[in-house]
Amino acid sequence: MSQTILSLLLEATLETIYMVVMASVIAAALGLPLGVLLYVTRKGNILEKNWLHRSLGSLVNMTRSIPFIILMVAIIPFTRLIVGTSIGTNAAIVPLALAAIPFIARIVDSALIEIHKGLIESALAMGATPWQIILKVLLPEAFPSIINGLTLTVVTLVGYSAMAGAVGGGGLGDMAIRYGYERFNLSVMIITIVIMLLLVQGIQFIGDALVKKFSLFRK
């Protein structure tokens, strides 16, 4: 295999990592608060607001039900507005993050639902404010499940990033299509697959380690 192909592979790997990391960070930064909001506004909860909960809920469901490949194309004008272009790794980050936000919001919401209601109750009885409950009770108690869910999201994003790559986003997906598929270069195809596999394994490993570290004290 030629030197150029190898350096192209390295570059593509870095691009994929870059896309996934950026998209994950953005999606977590927006999805986490959204998930918390979804939870606390639910009926019977600390900041019950029925209309807000319902509208956020439907927004999240709607976004989640759009297939990624269609979402990517549909939001091209939006992507252009933010990044200035609709091709390249930076442009791919926008749909990737957007697809992951509702996913993370649901994950956070369902992680919080698992928390025993009595914990909120006892915090309320101690005079805690909603903020204190969110920061000191809800998030720490749900932390392992949230990390678990985030790991799942990042792994999914690796797959999505390959799709984004295929339509001009760069990264391993792009490489696999252009060299592996269009130029019948089987070894490039295999190598990109192996790298993606290792990426996913690595992410899962880190996620599992974190979950394990923070679940030590649980029943």
Partner: peptide, 21 residues
């Protein structure tokens, strides 16, 4: 009311301790 609640302790059937502390 929140301030007043600090001076009213409460314990429960299932303890309600924070598992990560």
């Amino acid at each position: 009311l929140r301030k007043a609640r600090r001076k009213i302790g409460m314990i429960f059937q299932y303890f309600n301790l924070l598992s990560t502390r």
